[in-house]
């Protein structure tokens, strides 16, 4: 316990505290010129402390102070009706729904591609280089076009955004699963061979169980990518709902506090999703009989 305290909790807390302090200093430094301007025009002279407080309570600061973001976040998360347009829970739920749908599509697609690559030589030789190349392509640039073109065909709402998430999330899963399905050693494959196991039996009884840790590791990456896809997918729809649209409308009206609160909400959603996938992975491994290392 003391080890954990010394090795992890204290250092992380100290660094986080340092970040918060740096943030306060930064918000003073960045808001001060504007505040000085305001004071001069109003003809107000204030003491240093009053001035510092004022830089941290502007309605549209350049860099909002942490407590302003926290107040805005708490207000919009816990004290608004969930159905209200200003509720962060509402926006987060909209983003979450397309994230989860896209993530589910992406995972299934990634697994299917991986199974194909592992079992068909032609696919391995022809598809694998393209999967690696496609990771070097800024696929996110496609986002606005997918949305607009699908809207022109009459498909709007959840599906186009989910498609972008699918795009981003199937690569990690496919690559991770290929690695996982190939992870059984020659010795294990030979053992299955001596049992006269069919290809299907080798797949279900050896390859699939061996790939589970790889699957969950890549699903963690995929779910984070999927959230990014959903947020970017909300930009070109013209700021209707979701965390991305909250960011966009914030940038239209210079509502910096709202933007930071939306960022915090997005980060919390990301951490929740990644932890959930991690938890699911640990439960699955325990059910399958893995022992803690």
């Amino acid at each position: 316990m003391t080890d954990r305290l010394r090795d992890k909790i204290i250092p992380v807390t100290v660094i986080l505290a340092a970040i918060v302090v740096a943030w306060y200093v930064g918000s003073y430094a960045m808001n001060a010129p504007f505040q000085r301007d305001l004071d001069r025009r109003a003809g107000v002279t204030s003491t240093t402390w009053e001035f510092v407080v004022k830089t941290m309570s502007q309605p549209k600061p350049t860099l909002p102070a942490p407590h302003q973001v926290a107040v805005n976040f708490v207000e919009n998360t816990f004290f608004r009706k969930v159905t209200s347009n200003r509720s962060l829970v509402y926006h987060a739920a909209v983003t979450l729904s397309s994230t989860v749908l896209g993530f589910a599509f992406g995972t299934v697609l990634g697994i299917l591609i991986a199974v194909g690559i592992v079992h068909v030589v032609t696919l391995d030789r022809s598809l694998m280089p393209w999967i690696i190349t496609s990771q070097t392509i800024p696929i996110l640039a496609l986002a606005p076009m997918i949305i607009v073109v699908l809207a022109a065909v009459g498909i709007t709402g959840l599906i186009p955004k989910a498609l972008i998430s699918t795009y981003l999330s199937f690569f990690p899963v496919a690559v991770g699963m290929v690695k996982g399905l190939r992870s059984p050693e020659i010795m294990h494959l030979d053992l299955m061979h001596t049992y006269n196991a069919s290809a299907g039996q080798v797949f279900w009884k050896l390859r699939v169980p061996a790939s589970v840790p790889f699957l969950f590791a890549s699903m963690k990456v995929a779910v984070a990518a999927s959230l990014v896809g959903a947020i970017v997918g909300e930009l070109p729809t013209g700021a209707v709902a979701g965390i991305g649209s909250k960011l966009l409308s914030g940038s239209y009206y210079s509502q910096t506090i709202d933007m930071f609160a939306a960022l915090v909400a997005g980060s919390i959603v990301a951490i929740l999703l990644v932890s959930l996938v991690g938890l699911a992975g640990r439960i699955t491994e325990r059910v399958m009989g893995a022992r803690p290392a």
């Binding site: 992380v12 965390i243 910096t256 939306a262």
Partner: peptide
């Protein structure tokens, strides 16, 4: 290192792209 690494690992999961509008404003 002990303080930064957990934070760094966590940040890699965050949608950092969201800072784009703030940077454009600054």
């Amino acid at each position: 290192r002990r303080g930064l690494m957990p934070i760094g690992n966590m940040v890699s999961a965050l949608p950092i792209i969201g800072v784009a509008p703030i940077m454009v404003m600054w």
